[in-house]
């Protein structure tokens, strides 16, 4: 009843072809989300297509002002990567506070954004940095890619191959960790692009998933400093509320994390 066929693909083309031949396939990256869900019997794919051995999905490239992280790169490898640390240290920092060591060794950037958990860290980085998601078919801007809780622009069988981040002038990330899961109770990524644009994204806060925070963007555009955010008011309506944080608390965290991210931005 819950049997599944395991495939190990060796190229993107093979993975996509295997997917289209199966009735209800799932790509498997780090397995940190998919496998627990299968163990709980909340997902029962007929076929699991492991992306772990596909060379073209591994690695980081820095070329001019664009940092490209291939979809299958693990958080740990991103955290250790010299180009990431040089181009956008905030991304390296983000991976260092993501989950726990086991999750960081296995989990991947592709799996994270494909899953688009409303409390995941990477979606905030993509949105704030104005990244582009590359798939086997097309390029999708972060603004278009994330479409609400666990929902993305990906079509059935579409495979993320990489994410391209414009190298910012400055960026910072701060996160209040969920005490149990270590996801973001609220995390805020702030970025100033080389053309002077300011983009701010919050994760873990909104009922509709990762979101831009225009009020803070405006304040920071006028004055890139933590104190500029003091007078910003964030509404608690439409924010998440659960046993670990009320909506008012998350509204507060958006401001406080944004201030600390600005202070830490490099």
């Amino acid at each position: 009843m819950y049997q599944t066929v395991y495939h190990r693909a060796s190229s993107v083309d093979e993975a996509v072809a295997l997917f289209s031949k199966s009735s209800e396939a799932k790509f498997l990256a780090g397995g940190q989300t998919l496998l627990p869900v299968m163990k709980q019997r909340l997902a029962s794919p007929t076929d699991v297509i492991d992306l772990g051995k596909i060379k073209e999905l591994q690695g980081v490239e820095l070329s001019g002002d664009v940092l490209t992280i291939k979809a299958g790169t693990t958080y740990f490898d991103i955290m250790q990567n010299a180009d990431v640390k040089k181009a956008t240290p905030a991304i390296a920092y983000l991976t260092s506070v993501l989950g726990d060591p086991a999750v960081r060794y296995r989990g991947t950037i592709g799996g994270s954004i494909a899953n688009n958990d409303p409390a995941a860290d990477f979606p905030a980085a993509l949105l704030a940095l104005g990244a582009t998601v590359k798939t086997n078919k097309r390029s999708i801007t972060a603004d278009d890619f994330f479409q609400g809780l666990f929902t993305t622009a990906l079509e059935d069988g579409e495979l993320i191959t990489a994410v391209s981040f414009p190298v910012p002038a400055k960026a910072g990330y701060e996160k209040m960790r969920h005490p149990a899961s270590r996801f973001a109770l609220t995390g805020v990524f702030v970025a100033q692009t080389k053309s002077g644009e300011v983009r701010v994204a919050a994760t873990g806060a909104s009922q509709s998933g990762v979101m831009r925070v225009p009020a803070i963007e405006t304040a920071l555009k006028a004055n890139w400093s933590p104190s500029a955010i003091d007078s910003v008011s964030i509404s608690a309506s439409n924010l998440l509320a659960d046993i670990h944080g009320t909506a008012e608390y998350r509204a507060n965290l958006i401001k406080v994390m944004a201030q600390r991210a600005v202070a830490a931005a490099r």
Binding site: P179, A180, S181, I243, H244
Partner: peptide, 16 residues
Amino acid sequence: PVTASFMDYAMPRADD
């Protein structure tokens, strides 16, 4: 029950 897994029930870890 609202806290029936370690994703919701916060067990202390060494760094806490």
